[in-house]
């Protein structure tokens, strides 16, 4: 057991141990940080930037999910600067692709909608990019609509790390970035997909859904996936 050491978060001194992330420490101590790409049990990648925090002595903001604790850290999580950026990030997520809540399978059951509520996005200050993207319905049970994807990459990680299939991956960068199946083939032709549906369960928005659901009627069994990961860790 490594010895605990203190760090300061929002003026509060907290005992931590080496290897923990700042996000883990905050969540364990009731400090509320909005997250999007983070999913309990999956490796963190810092994709969405919503959990940005201020680390004293570092000029740029750092994502709490990938920031490891270290001695003498002084961290702020609720400054005006951070709140401003959080709002901007949620607005940018809404504007980058086509997020029409009213017609979406995830309406009312969507983490992006919840985030907008939480950080107070009442309108988007940026114009839509308006790039029409593909909808791949070639899989017998599931659909991926790239128009609604926010590139959190939870599906990529759950497929590779939990199911062990690694059907999904990522191509390109910036606004051309896409989720791909196998070697950028239609999902229905995938040799690796086991049709387990874990990707659908962890998707925070309406980008992945089962063909049996329709507008506003998606059912996401996120807790089941968390549970599975927890139980496996205990057994290993």
């Amino acid at each position: 057991m490594k010895p605990p050491f203190p760090i300061e978060i929002d003026g509060k001194v907290i005992q931590v141990t080496e290897g923990q992330t700042v996000l883990e420490v905050c969540q364990a101590n009731g400090i509320d940080i909005p997250v999007m790409c983070h999913f309990e049990g999956l490796p963190d990648v810092g994709a969405c930037r919503l959990c940005l925090v201020e680390l004293k002595g570092v000029p740029k903001l750092l994502p709490a999910c990938t920031l490891r604790v270290a001695p003498n850290q002084v961290i702020n999580t609720q400054t005006e600067k951070i709140k401003k950026y959080r709002k901007m990030i949620v607005e940018a997520l809404f504007c980058e692709r086509d997020h029409v809540c009213a017609i979406c399978v995830a309406n009312g059951n969507c983490e992006l909608q919840d985030l907008a509520k939480k950080v107070g996005v009442d309108h988007m200050r940026f114009p839509d990019i308006l790039q029409p993207l593909e909808l791949d319905a070639s899989h017998p049970y599931f659909v991926i609509d790239h128009n609604r994807c926010i590139m959190c990459t939870r599906c990529v990680r759950v497929c590779a790390e939990v199911e062990g299939a690694h059907n999904f991956d990522i191509k390109n960068r910036s606004y051309k970035v896409r989720i791909i199946s196998d070697f950028n083939q239609p999902w229905g032709e995938s040799k690796t997909c086991t049709s387990c549906g874990k990707c659908v369960a962890v998707c925070p928005v309406g980008a992945l859904w089962s063909k049996s659901s329709y507008q506003g009627k998606i059912e996401k069994k996120k807790e089941a996936i968390c549970d599975l990961i927890r139980k496996r860790k205990v057994n290993v």
Binding site: C101, C110, Q113, A116, K117
Partner: peptide, 11 residues
Amino acid sequence: DLAVIGGPKHG
């Protein structure tokens, strides 16, 4: 201030 009534809800 929409935050008073739970925040702005899109959709």
